[in-house]
Deep mutational scan, measured.
Amino acid sequence: KTYTFRVRIVDEETGEEKEIEVTAKSEEEAKKAAEELKKKYPNLKVELE
């Protein structure tokens, strides 16, 4: 079973919002993916929905 999570990304500089879908095998995995995004884009606000 896989879970699909919507991750909302807000670029703090431009105020631009993007939504991406993360497919993960567990909620834990999705959280890790969101953390990776935060590391990659430090000025983005990442929200897991």
Rank of each mutant, 00 (worst) to 15 (best):
K1W: 10
K1N: 11
K1E: 09
K1Q: 10
K1A: 10
T2D: 11
T2H: 10
Y3S: 04
Y3K: 05
Y3G: 03
Y3E: 05
Y3F: 11
T4L: 08
T4R: 10
T4C: 12
F5A: 02
F5G: 00
F5H: 01
F5L: 08
R6V: 15
R6G: 02
R6F: 13
R6M: 13
R6S: 06
V7T: 00
R8V: 14
R8M: 09
R8S: 06
R8L: 13
I9W: 14
I9H: 01
I9K: 00
I9L: 13
V10K: 08
V10F: 13
D11P: 00
D11N: 12
D11W: 04
D11E: 02
D11C: 07
E12F: 07
E12Q: 11
E12D: 08
E13S: 12
E13K: 12
E13V: 13
E13H: 09
E13F: 10
T14V: 01
T14C: 05
T14I: 02
T14W: 01
T14R: 02
G15H: 03
G15I: 00
G15F: 02
E16F: 10
E16P: 00
E16H: 05
E16A: 07
E17N: 04
E17S: 13
E17G: 04
E17H: 08
K18W: 15
K18M: 14
K18T: 14
K18F: 15
K18H: 14
K18S: 11
K18Y: 15
E19F: 15
E19K: 06
E19Y: 15
E19Q: 10
E19V: 15
E19T: 15
E19N: 09
E19S: 13
I20V: 09
E21F: 15
E21M: 14
E21L: 15
E21R: 07
E21Q: 10
V22E: 00
V22D: 00
V22S: 01
V22G: 02
V22H: 01
T23D: 04
T23W: 13
T23R: 09
A24F: 14
A24R: 04
K25Q: 13
K25M: 11
K25T: 13
K25L: 12
K25S: 14
S26H: 04
S26T: 13
E27R: 12
E27S: 06
E27H: 13
E27W: 15
E27G: 05
E28G: 07
E28P: 04
E28H: 08
E29L: 05
E29C: 11
E29N: 03
E29G: 05
A30M: 08
A30F: 11
A30C: 08
A30R: 03
A30H: 00
A30I: 08
K31F: 12
K31P: 01
K31E: 08
K31H: 12
K31V: 10
K32S: 08
K32F: 09
K32R: 12
K32V: 10
K32T: 09
A33Y: 15
A33K: 14
A33G: 04
A34N: 02
A34C: 14
A34K: 09
A34Y: 15
A34F: 15
E35R: 06
E35W: 09
E35S: 08
E36Q: 10
E36G: 06
E36A: 10
L37F: 07
K38S: 11
K38Q: 14
K38W: 09
K39T: 07
K39N: 08
K39P: 02
K40S: 06
K40R: 11
Y41E: 02
P42C: 06
N43M: 08
N43R: 02
N43I: 04
N43L: 08
L44H: 14
L44K: 09
L44F: 14
K45I: 13
K45P: 03
K45R: 13
K45Q: 08
V46H: 04
V46N: 03
V46A: 04
V46R: 00
V46F: 11
V46C: 10
V46G: 04
E47P: 04
E47H: 07
E47Q: 11
E47C: 10
L48E: 05
L48V: 12
L48F: 14
L48W: 15
L48Q: 05
L48G: 06
L48R: 05
E49G: 12
E49S: 12
